[in-house]
Simulated assay, not measured.
Amino acid sequence: MLIPIPCVVMRGGTSKGPFFLLDDLPHDEATRNRVLLAAMGSPDRRQIDGLGGGDSLTSKVVMVSKSARPGIDVEYLFAQVSIDSETVDTSPNCGNMLAGVAPFAIEHGLVAAGMPTTRVRVFNRNTGKVVEAVVQTPGGKVNYEGDVHIDGVPGSGAPILLNFLDAAGAKTGRLLPTGRVQDVIDGVPVSCVDFSSPIVFIAAASLGKSGYESKAQLDGDSALLARLEAIRLEAAQRMGMGDVRGKVLPKLVLLARPAQGGQISSRYFVPWNCHAAHAVTGALCVAAACSIPGTIAAELVQPDAAQPGLIGIEHPSGRLDTRVQIDGRDDDGLPLIRSAGVVRTAKPIVSGVVYVPGSAWEATV
């Protein structure tokens, strides 16, 4: 028998995937993972038997629940579902998909809508951090239409402001996981920074690249990808993350000076191929790294004197603007980054049920 599970397929930022109420899924993690794999149609490169789109940016799942934590409205668990293996990874966060969490929560009665906007405090179970989302709700209804355009998405939509609060050390517990602003791995200078997501930053020129290459150019360079993976594996060990073979964290970013009017150019890897645009959590980490003296990012960034805190990040599909709020320095001279914000859009695409084989639920039925 096929089992129907309610869900809403939504676009969040430059990503897309099904949103579930956590209570509609198995409580046992192993069983839940089997259900999510079946729902997405994995493992299969085309994901022809499920909701996945055969791309890492469209093989993502969001699970939302009401929160009992003081001062928190809802909780959000993100899962990156592998396309061609039986892997469901809940170690990373996804800031793009996060854009859909507050609208989904309001529309499902988990949060009461205000007017003209609604502030939703979201606890991210992947990182243990809090994000404040501000959604347009004129007349007490979620509005998705507007004039905000984000590069990598056609058309425009209503703005959804995401403020990431105290996101330093999201996975490793430290803003600089190795304790240094720069390390050298395989003869290449790198900066390992953990803000919202742990990232290994490399100057593109250190690897013979301009930093302005297209996704196709970078994805077609097998020698580069192999070297990046070797650097990533060693960096993870130094960051205290252990053996990360087969895991998506930490991510990698190639940086260069800006060429299109922004503050820095970035090529974000997910991690085995280049992102078509840029991850939100990755962008926030880029912005944080630009604020730390001595990092690879700080050496390449060109700040806008007229707009302190603005870091416009150029990526293969355009530009993503972030804003960082710094409240002084700590005893080590590192910036105290209280919040980092970004504006995204989201849109529900279809609402209904996804059917999974009963065998996927066999441990709970």
Results as ranks from 00 to 15, higher is better:
P4H: 04
P4G: 08
M10W: 10
G12S: 09
G12F: 04
D28N: 15
E29D: 15
R34P: 03
L36Q: 05
L36G: 07
M40H: 07
D44S: 10
R45C: 08
Q47C: 10
G54L: 07
L57A: 12
S67T: 05
A68V: 11
R69S: 12
P70C: 01
I72L: 04
E75L: 02
F78G: 04
C94Q: 10
N96F: 07
A99T: 08
A99K: 02
E107W: 01
M115N: 15
M115V: 14
V120R: 01
N124Q: 15
N126T: 06
V130C: 10
V131F: 08
A133G: 12
P138E: 07
G146P: 08
H149A: 15
T172Y: 01
L175I: 06
L176N: 04
P177N: 04
R180S: 13
V181D: 05
Q182R: 15
Q182L: 04
V184Y: 01
S197Y: 01
V200S: 06
D219G: 11
D221F: 05
D221Q: 03
A223P: 00
A226D: 13
L228K: 01
L233Q: 12
A235P: 06
A235L: 08
A235E: 02
A236E: 04
M239G: 09
M239A: 10
G240C: 02
G242K: 08
K247M: 11
P250D: 10
L252W: 00
V253T: 12
S265Y: 01
R267P: 07
Y268I: 05
H275G: 06
A277R: 00
T281R: 06
G282S: 03
C285G: 06
I292A: 10
E299C: 07
D304F: 02
H315C: 02
Q325L: 14
Q325E: 14
I326S: 00
D330I: 05
G341Q: 13
V343E: 13
R344Q: 13
I349M: 15
A360T: 06
A360F: 00
W361H: 10
